[in-house]
């Protein structure tokens, strides 16, 4: 660490510097920008390389295991597969958006945005890489929860003698996956809009409660909630069969709580001063 250079002249460059310099990288400096896949790779790694990120995913797995255990024990495990699927999907749909929120807001709360946006100055690409990486985590998590649900139902049949009921439309799988991923996007959008961890998490969790509280007090809010309360508009996804009106309601709420905050958040991220 310390050096033994004798300093003959304070401002002259010594022919051999007293401190070792890192080896120079041979070849020309790059003229091409960072490939998007590399940005996604780094964002994925950043979700998993801190205790906070890892524990959040572990917590989700523990909650899912818990709900499945309850189903497995309750009533001799006598439940149709669709209930097992819902038992794994619902807790994930509630908690996974926090992963999306943190992927964005931790850059600001931990102030790593300073480094992130100097290594890739095209900030919207970083933001899209975060969206992509979060969705990849979401898809893997959904597949994992489906597998767990399947295993739990099979185990209930095999170990507890429950009657098998695998009856499930293919669209239900898609609907359940859509339910989780839309919630995740909702979280990311709030994260980008607010860039503040507590604010984004509170907004994400308080909003559905606010809808039901308002709806109970005022019929106008109740009516609006049919079109704007994502908790309600996404519910039919679990049936795997949506009417035209339900699609319109789902689309409206997603536009209001996913597309709009995501667009405004993207716009803000490319313009704000990174502190």
């Amino acid at each position: 660490m310390s050096t033994t250079t004798s300093e003959t002249s304070a401002r002259a460059h010594p022919p051999t510097a007293g401190a070792t310099l890192p080896a120079q990288i041979p070849g020309n400096r790059p003229t091409a920008g960072l490939p998007f896949t590399r940005l996604v790779h780094v964002e994925l790694r950043k979700m998993l390389d801190t205790r906070a990120g890892r524990w959040l995913l572990i917590a989700i797995a523990v909650v899912i295991a818990g709900t499945l255990t309850i189903l497995f024990v309750q009533d001799g495990g006598e439940h149709p597969f669709s209930e097992y699927l819902q038992a794994t999907t619902m807790p994930m749909a509630i908690l996974l958006p926090v992963v999306g929120i943190l992927a964005v807001t931790s850059e600001w709360s931990q102030r790593t945005a300073l480094v992130t946006f100097t290594l890739e100055a095209r900030r919207s690409r970083v933001a899209w890489a975060k969206v992509t990486a979060s969705l990849l985590v979401g898809v893997v998590a959904v597949a994992f929860s489906f597998a767990l649900g399947t295993a739990a139902h099979a185990a209930a049949i095999g170990l507890r003698g429950a009657t098998g009921d695998w009856e499930l439309a293919g669209t239900v799988w898609l609907g359940a996956a859509g339910y989780v991923l839309l919630g995740l996007l909702n979280g990311i959008a709030f994260g980008m809009l607010l860039r503040n961890t507590p604010a984004a998490i509170v907004l994400y969790f308080v909003l559905p409660t606010a809808w039901s509280a308002l709806g109970a007090l005022w019929s106008g809010a109740e009516k609006a909630g049919r079109w704007l309360d994502m908790n309600r508009t996404m519910e039919p996804l679990f049936t795997g069969d949506l009417s035209g009106e339900q699609w319109a309601q789902l689309g409206t709420s997603v536009a209001a709580w996913v597309a709009l905050p995501l667009a405004v958040g993207m716009w803000l991220i490319t313009r704000v001063e990174v502190k």
Partner: peptide
């Protein structure tokens, strides 16, 4: 010692 090391490092970097 660290400050001195940094000084040498920066001078060396500029010398390159």
């Amino acid at each position: 010692a660290g400050i001195r090391w940094m000084r040498d490092l920066l001078k060396g970097f500029a010398a390159q």
